[in-house]
């Protein structure tokens, strides 16, 4: 499973300060740290408090791609900010994200086609997040159909079935796993899958344990990637172990180190 490192996000105070002061140090530090820990992508989110999202996103892209060779995942609801970032990305990037709402899909898949970008598609629409797997899968199919219509390769699409915290939306857990399984049957080749991993543990006391358990259970259902804390060593070790148990990587005694170094 690919880890999309979540840490360069204006929700964190050090990154918010960095963006405000245009001081690259914290961004560089987290880019390097997440890369060293085994992240495969770096998520960039300018956060809620920024007035000019376009220039903030451009700055984050510039600073991050100086510090790391990893592909970037541009995370914003402001598609102008995403487009500004895509224009200056040196490597094909990922767009995070688009719901199954027609005018948004029109904009995002056009961008994806133009910039050869990957896309995270959310299994939700104007009515919000569905309760059951069937409705999630139906929205996933809309995303697949639009992706195909805009000529974006289906395996450049990552569907996020949307995870709710296990203390408030406990009944969503099994629905998410079922959605992950069914997404792999939607097309050939099938779309990829992703989740915002830390959502599962929002507001709970034992967040890291819940994240790790959820990650390996979801991998067994077909999860390909997750926006997650790449610096949680136990999480990375759990993912590396699940890859061995699922016969995705060939075992050797140093398999955790090999997993961490594979993107470097």
């Amino acid at each position: 499973m690919i880890i999309i490192g979540e840490r360069i996000n204006g929700m964190f105070r050090d990154i918010a300060n960095a963006i405000r002061e245009r001081d690259p140090r914290a961004v560089i530090e987290w880019a390097k740290k997440q890369e060293a820990m085994g992240a495969g992508y770096l998520d960039l989110n300018v956060g809620p408090a920024v007035a000019d999202r376009v220039s903030a996103m451009k700055w984050l892209v510039e600073v991050t791609q100086e510090a790391s060779k990893l592909p970037l995942c541009l995370d914003s609801t402001d598609y102008d900010a995403i487009e500004a970032g895509l224009e200056i990305c040196k490597r094909p990037a990922m767009i995070n994200s688009v719901p199954a709402i027609q005018e948004k899909m029109d904009r995002v898949f056009t961008l994806a086609s133009k910039y050869n970008a990957e896309v995270i598609g959310l299994a939700m629409n104007e009515e919000g997040i569905p309760k059951d797997a069937e409705s999630r899968v139906a929205l996933a199919m809309e995303l697949v159909a639009n992706c195909d219509a805009y000529g974006v390769p289906i395996d450049n699409l990552y569907i996020d079935p949307l995870v709710l915290p296990c203390n408030v939306g406990q009944d969503h857990g099994p629905e998410v796993f079922e959605t992950l399984r069914q997404i792999k049957m939607l097309s050939d080749p099938p779309p990829k899958t992703t989740v915002g991993l830390s959502n599962i543990s929002q507001g709970t006391k034992n967040r890291e344990l819940i994240n790790r358990v959820f990650a390996v259970m979801a991998m067994a259902c077909g999860l390909d990637s997750a926006i997650a804390d790449a610096c949680d060593e136990e999480l990375v070790a759990s993912i590396a172990t699940a890859r061995v148990v699922l016969n995705m990587d060939i075992y050797c005694d140093s398999y955790v180190d090999v997993f961490k170094s594979q993107n470097q």
Partner: peptide, 9 residues
Amino acid sequence: INIAKQLNI
């Protein structure tokens, strides 16, 4: 195969 990989590492 596991030793082959480990030895290379």
